[in-house]
Design a protein around this nucleic acid. Structure first.
Lengths: 338, 338
DNA sequence: CTGAAAGCGCTTACAG
DNA sequence: CTGAAAGCGCTTACAG
């Protein structure tokens, strides 16, 4: 299938009249080589269209120049703009530093896919996107002392390299904004309640509600999964419990989109009237620019690009033996959308 | 960083009292091994927690057990649900057949990222998602005789393995449905006009319009990029040219979402009235379930899962020397959404 | 049914 | 500044 014959370092060496060692050193850009032979070698490499085999190199060096990207197994995750932006930037960053990205999944309570990659030496390190409480993959990686960095926070383990937004603080600030805007009854709709992100944001919400002398009401709180369907159903339930809410805090772009769908669909098209009294929605990411002139939208932008870029650079720094901080916090931005 | 010492085939052999060859054969599940030694070897492997090095294996076999997934470089692509679903299923399929997925990009007129993967022997074959006219990556892959399969159609080259929906036919059927629903003036909003998908769908639209004695009107046609912003702006432009259109054909979920945003935002919230007279929208994927009681939505479902799965299986079949068809067409489904 | 040996294509002490 | 040799961890004819 492939070209008849792969050109190897030996062929380059022969043609250039030097040894394999010398060619290897030329490629590796070692200092102690005469410019003359170096030039000769490079010209032969070009002529022969030579490319070192990454595989052979890996075996000799015991490094693969691959990083594994571990994705959550739930389908919804892939619909999240956060994932998309991160994947792209991680891939770019890795590539700029000479690494490639290999995909792996983090199934429910199963680490096999990651374990296979690690044990088979297919990756040098791993980036994990989103973790749950007592994440088995984290436990496995930590126990086998394998280099990895987590996008997000590890609740259970302290000695984990991580890049995260301060989600508790972000959600406190966000909730406070709703209160400052005059909201008296603020609902909360979150994703998977085992997800660390959801937990942090929920805590921020709770603290702010309590600190401001409002009472926490279970009927106004929904936590399910990271999907627009969840948003749609959650807001429906909440409104059934109490139609007088005037604000909502939402933890995720997909959920937000489901909530907006619900609201837009439940306005009378005849009269333009709506029984929905929501004045302000605070959310983490909107996904697209759905609007509604009656509702103020406050968005927390967690900067998935910086998170992705930092996680990747941190991992590679780690692999290259550089000093890295254990925990890095990336700023968030809050802004009004309409 | 890693565990003190990696366990190798040699250590297993020694402990089991056999040679490396025999261990290798046991792993490879060769027939000619006595059950006794096989058992012995497996128990030692378990005991030592041995895992063969994929790297060493690759070097010996000259295969990497990796497939490259080549993604378009434009950011918008990543927001497309089609991409997300495909990535997931491709990854699953590859994994079930013992392969891993490596990400690569197909930059504007540049094949470097793919070329590097191929030349460095990091992948055995490549899956390309979406191609443009005279795609340089396709040319490179074909010229170097490297195994690959294209999701989509190759306009320029016939001897390319591909898995595709019949987009011309699908868009003909779709457009005809709008006509049957009574539409008299049907606009068209498409993505990048160099993209083969867009071209095919546009052709389907054009043919149907002409076959039904309607006249093609440039003012009603917009082709730009695969983004919701494009949808928003395109519908705005078209309506400015002619506010009497009563149907639209849209080639992409993101574009659709932008169009719906526009329509929902340009209805008077006071009176519920709208100057927009669109009765039916035909689209390829909706992304989410945005609705509008005034508008009938007809969706073509291109089944990205089957496309992803087939492309991956075809590639691996190819790598394993099985017979595969050059072109495979996957059925689409048309259904009314509301 | 099993082992010794050569080979996959690199890198890297070691010696000069 | 350069080369010969050993090694990375496997596989696979070849011989028995």
């Amino acid at each position: 299938m492939k070209e008849g014959r792969h050109v190897t370092i030996k062929m380059v060496a022969d043609k250039a009249g030097v040894s394999k060692s010398t060619v290897s050193r030329a490629i590796g850009n070692y200092p102690d080589i005469s410019d003359k032979t170096k030039e000769k070698i490079f010209s032969v490499m070009k002529e022969l269209n030579y490319y070192p085999s990454a595989i052979a190199r890996s075996l000799a060096n015991r490094i693969s120049k691959n990083v594994g990207l571990v994705l959550p197994a739930d389908d919804d995750f892939f619909l999240n703009p956060f994932f998309q932006e991160s994947l792209r930037i991680i891939s770019k960053t890795a590539s700029s530093r000479g690494y490639d990205v290999l995909i792996a999944y983090n199934g429910d309570n199963e680490t096999r896919s990651v374990e296979r990659l690690v044990k088979a030496n297919k990756v040098d390190g791993v980036i994990m996107m989103r973790s749950v409480v007592q994440d088995p993959t984290i436990e496995y990686l930590r126990d086998s002392n394998f280099p990895f960095v987590l996008i997000g926070k590890s609740i259970d383990y302290s000695s984990v390299h991580s890049v995260d937004t301060d989600n508790v603080d972000a959600c406190k600030t966000l909730t406070k904004k709703l209160i400052d805007s005059g909201c008296k009854k603020i609902a909360f709709i979150g994703g998977d309640k085992n997800s660390v992100v959801t937990i942090d944001r929920f805590n921020g919400y709770v603290k702010t509600i309590e600190e401001n002398g409002m009472k926490l009401n279970k009927d106004l709180i929904q936590e399910n999964e990271f999907s627009s369907m969840n948003g749609y159903r959650s807001i429906e339930k909440i409104l059934k419990n109490d139609s007088s809410i005037d604000g909502i805090v939402i933890t995720d772009a997909l959920i937000f989109s489901g909530v907006m769908d619900y609201i837009n669909n439940h306005k009378s098209y005849e009269t333009g009237e709506s029984s929905i009294k929501i004045k302000v929605i605070g959310t983490f990411g909107t996904g697209n620019f759905q609007q509604n002139p009656d509702i103020e939208i406050i968005n927390v932008d967690v900067d998935s690009k910086i998170l992705g870029e930092k996680s990747c650079n941190t991992l590679i720094d780690l692999l290259e033996g550089k000093d890295v901080e254990m925990t890095q916090i990336v700023d968030y931005k809050i802004s009004n959308i309409n």
